[in-house]
Simulated scan of single mutants.
Amino acid sequence: MIALGILASIAGIGFFCWLLFTLAVYALPFFAGVTIGLWAYDAGAGPIGGVLIGAFAAGVTGGAAQFIFTSVRSVWIRLAIALAFAAPAAVAGYHATLGLTKLTMPSEGWQIAFSVIGAVAVGATAWTRLVAMAPPEVSGHALARR
C-alpha cells in the first residue's frame, strides 16, 4: 500500500510538471485576463461579467501576440514579444518550483536554488514553444529559384 502511494505521488508530481510546462506559454494571457477581469469586477461588472471580460481579454492578448509574432519580420519585435511571454512563465515556474521545494526541503537556500533552476527551465520552455510557432524565414535566394 505504501508503494502504491509513492507511485501515485510521483505520477501526480509528473502530471503537474507536465501541465506547468504545457501551460507556460499562456502565462501572459492568463495574467492579462486576471488583471482586466479584476478591474472589471471592481468597476461594477459583477463576478460573471468580470470572468467573461477577463476571458475575452486573455483570448485577445494571446491571439494578438501570436498573430503579431508570426507575421512580423522584425527580429526586435519578435524578441520583445517572446520576452513578454517568457518572463511571466519564468515567474510562474519559480513559484511553482518554490511551492514544491517547500514541501520537500528544509533548507531555504536550496529551495531558492531549485526555484531559480525551475524558473529558467519553464521560461526556456515557453520561449522555445513560442519560437517554434514562427514560420521559417525565406531568403531572397530561395524565392529566386522558384
Rank of each mutant, 00 (worst) to 15 (best):
G14A: 07
F15R: 09
L19D: 06
L20K: 04
L23I: 11
V25G: 00
V25Y: 00
A27T: 12
P29A: 09
P29Y: 10
P29N: 04
F30T: 13
G33K: 03
V34G: 08
I36G: 03
I36N: 06
L38S: 10
W39P: 06
A40T: 04
Y41S: 14
A43D: 14
A45S: 15
P47V: 08
G50V: 03
I53Y: 06
G54D: 09
A55F: 14
A55S: 11
A55T: 09
A57T: 10
T61R: 01
A64P: 04
I68W: 13
I68M: 14
F69V: 01
R73E: 09
S74P: 11
I77V: 09
L79G: 15
L79E: 15
L79M: 12
L79R: 14
A80P: 13
A82T: 13
L83N: 12
A84S: 14
A87L: 15
A87P: 10
V91F: 14
V91R: 04
Y94N: 08
H95Q: 14
H95Y: 15
A96M: 15
G99I: 05
L100F: 15
T101L: 05
K102I: 09
T104D: 00
P106S: 14
S107L: 01
E108C: 08
G109W: 11
A113P: 01
A113F: 15
S115M: 00
S115W: 04
G118A: 02
G118S: 03
V122C: 12
A124Q: 00
A126G: 11
A126W: 13
W127S: 07
L130N: 02
L130C: 02
V131P: 13
A134Q: 03
E137M: 09
E137G: 05
V138C: 05
G140P: 02
G140T: 06
L143P: 03
L143G: 01
A144K: 04
A144I: 05
R146T: 04
R146F: 13
